[in-house]
Design a protein around this nucleic acid. Structure first.
Length: 107
DNA sequence: CTCTTGACCCGAA
DNA sequence: CTTCGGGCCAAGA
C-alpha cells in the first residue's frame, strides 16, 4: 500500500480507537485531520498490511453498521473480532452507538 | 491535468 | 424499512 501522510494519519487515528469501542469512517477521517474524507479512509483500510498493528475491525459505517466489502467474507471476520473484544450486535447486525461508539480523543 | 474507482455519508422518495 | 442521487476525498492510470 502507499505510505502517504494521509494514510499514516489514518492508521494512527485507527490505532487510537480504544479496545471494545468502534468509530465510523467519518470520525476516523476527522481524527486524522481530514474531515469529509470518510471514503478515502476506506481505501486506506482496504489496502492495509496485516502486520501494521492497525485494528481496522474497530471501524464501521455510520450508525454502527458493518460496511466492509460485499465481495468478501471480511464482514464475518470483523464481527467475530469485535465480539471477542466485548462489542455487542443487535439482531439487525448493528452496533448500539450509545454504548460502543467512540467520538474521538475527547468525547 | 483529467477520469475512474471505492471497506463512505446523508437527505429525499 | 429500502432505493436513488448527489457530494465527498485520496490514489492510481
Amino acid at each position: 500500500m502507499s505510505d502517504t501522510q494521509f494514510s499514516r494519519r489514518v492508521r494512527k487515528a485507527v490505532r487510537s480507537i480504544p479496545e471494545g469501542r468502534v468509530a465510523s469512517y467519518g470520525i476516523v477521517a476527522d481524527v486524522a485531520g481530514h474531515p469529509g474524507a470518510a471514503r478515502a479512509v476506506g481505501a486506506v483500510l482496504s489496502a492495509l498490511d496485516p502486520d501494521q498493528g492497525v485494528p481496522w475491525w474497530r471501524v464501521v459505517g455510520s450508525g454502527g453498521r458493518i460496511t466492509t466489502s460485499r465481495l468478501r467474507h471480511t464482514a464475518q471476520v470483523q464481527r467475530s473480532l469485535l465480539e471477542d473484544e466485548g462489542v455487542e450486535f443487535d439482531r439487525d447486525g448493528r452496533i448500539p452507538w450509545r454504548r460502543f461508539g467512540w467520538e474521538g480523543p475527547d468525547g
